[in-house]
Design a protein around this nucleic acid. Structure first.
Length: 222
DNA sequence: GCCCAGGTGTTTC
DNA sequence: GAAACACATGGG
């Protein structure tokens, strides 16, 4: 992609951002009390409605499972039972344990030590090496728990951009991310708000078979 | 009943 | 590689 289109993508993407921010205002993401709760939520929300994740998080809180030490104390079976409302509970219980096993082995169980690294690319690779943490979960953890400028791409991002003819429906995660990061300054606060605004917009106006483009704040760009 | 939800890993061509 | 499939609950 040449410099001119990068610059115009940047201008367009900031127009999108401004339109969404004007409509919805600041989203104050991630909806969680602690960094660990962000990580737990990022795993539990994989292909799952956020309301179901909240039930699971409440159950975990009641069982003292919302700290690394507290969750370490739970068996994978007990953990699965607590997070049942979030769906895929057996898979996700293993994924949470995979993260803890890594944290314990590599960082003495300390999130401060995990996030203490000043090598962001290495940190991302490290998260991706954990079974059950893919690109969206890794970027969500880096952005919303770690405050790093990693743009988060999700199903809504793909749907909205492809419906605007800006990317192919079949674009990879990396291509979608590149579309934003090659055109925008690497600003964690901007990336934080931008992804959150895309999610609220998608929920409201851009369902797979129920698009309401006429009411969408982005209709002016179609 | 059917559709949808803030994906990821494994298996199989 | 890229399809196809497994994983599962709860709201609309």
């Amino acid at each position: 992609m040449n410099r001119a289109s990068k610059a115009s993508n940047g201008a367009l993407l900031m127009e999108y951002y401004n339109a969404l921010f004007e409509r919805f205002g600041p989203q104050m993401w991630w909806p969680a009390r602690t960094r660990f709760e962000v990580i737990v939520g990022a795993i539990l929300t994989q292909n799952t409605n956020w309301g179901n994740v909240e039930r699971a998080v409440r159950a975990l809180r009641g069982a003292g499972g919302l700290t690394p030490k507290g969750m370490n104390a739970l068996s994978v079976e007990a953990l699965a039972e607590l997070i049942r409302p979030s769906g895929y509970f057996n898979v996700k219980a293993r994924r949470l344990k995979n993260f803890l096993t890594h944290l314990n082995a590599m960082h003495g169980g300390s999130l401060n030590r995990l996030f203490g690294s000043n090598n962001q690319e290495r940190l991302r690779t490290e998260l991706l090496s954990i079974n059950g943490i893919g690109p969206e979960t890794a970027d969500s953890i880096l952005l919303y728990a770690g405050g790093r400028a990693e743009f988060v791409v999700d199903a809504y991002t793909r749907r909205i951009l492809s419906r605007h003819g800006l990317i192919e429906e079949t674009s990879t995660y990396g291509e979608l991310k590149e579309f934003f990061t090659s055109a925008l300054a690497p600003d964690a606060a901007l990336f934080n708000e931008y992804h959150a605004l895309i999610v609220v917009t998608g929920k409201e106006y851009c369902r797979p078979r129920a698009q309401k483009c006429e009411e969408c704040p982005l209709k002016l760009f179609l």
